[in-house]
Simulated assay, not measured.
Amino acid sequence: MNKVPMTVAGESRLRKELEQLKGEARPRVIAAIAEAREHGDLKENAEYHAAREQQGFIEGRIQEIEGKLGSAQVIDVTKLPQTGKVIFGVTVELLNLDTDEQMRYRIVGEDEANIKAGLISVTSPIARALIGKEEGDVVVVKTPGGNVEYEIGGIEHI
Score class of each variant (00 low, 15 high):
Ile75Thr: 02
Glu47Asn: 14
Gln54Pro: 02
Gln63Met: 13
Met103Gln: 11
Phe57Pro: 03
Asp76Val: 10
Val92Asn: 00
Glu44Gly: 14
Glu47Gly: 13
Asn45Thr: 04
Ala51Gln: 04
Arg52Val: 15
His49Leu: 10
Leu94Trp: 04
Gly56His: 07
His39Phe: 13
Arg61Thr: 12
Glu101Gln: 14
Thr99Ile: 09
Ser71Phe: 12
His49Cys: 02
Gly84Val: 06
Leu80Arg: 14
Arg61Tyr: 12
Gln73Trp: 11
Glu101Thr: 08
Glu93Asn: 08
Ile75Asn: 02
Asn96Gly: 07
Lys68Asn: 09
Thr91Trp: 03
Gly40Ala: 07
Gln82Lys: 13
Val86Phe: 03
Glu66Phe: 09
Lys85Met: 12
Ile62Tyr: 05
Val77Asn: 00
Gly40Ser: 06
Gly70Trp: 11
Asn96Gln: 08
Arg52Asn: 05
His49Val: 02
Val108His: 01
Thr78Ser: 13
Leu42Gln: 15
Ile65Ala: 05
Tyr48Gly: 00
Glu93His: 09
Tyr48Asn: 03
Thr91Gln: 07
Ile58Asn: 03
Val86Gln: 03
Ala72Phe: 09
Glu64Trp: 11
Glu59Lys: 07
Asp100Gly: 08
Thr99Ala: 10
Ser71Glu: 14
Leu80Ala: 14
Leu97Trp: 01
Thr83Gly: 11
Asp76His: 06
Lys79Tyr: 01
Arg104Val: 09
Met103Ser: 15
Leu95Gln: 05
Ala46His: 11
Lys79Arg: 14
Gly67Arg: 11
Glu47Thr: 04
Thr99His: 10
Lys79Gly: 01
Phe88Met: 04
Gly70Phe: 11
Thr78Ile: 07
Ser71Cys: 07
Gly40Lys: 05
Lys43Asp: 15
Glu47Met: 10
Gly84Met: 06
Arg106Trp: 00
Asn96Val: 05
Thr78Arg: 11
Ala50Leu: 14
Ile62Thr: 09
Glu59Cys: 05
Gly89Tyr: 00
Leu80Val: 11
Gly84Pro: 05
Glu53Met: 12
Glu59Gly: 06
Glu47Val: 01
Ala51Ile: 04
Asp100Asn: 15
Glu53Asp: 15
Ala51Leu: 04
Leu97Gly: 02
Glu93Gly: 15
Val90Gln: 00
Leu95Phe: 04
Lys43Arg: 15
Leu42Pro: 14
Glu59Trp: 03
Thr83Asp: 04
Pro81Phe: 05
Glu47Leu: 13
Asn45Ser: 08
Arg106Met: 09
Ile87Ala: 04
Gly56Ala: 11
Gly40Trp: 05
Glu59Asn: 10
Asn96Tyr: 07
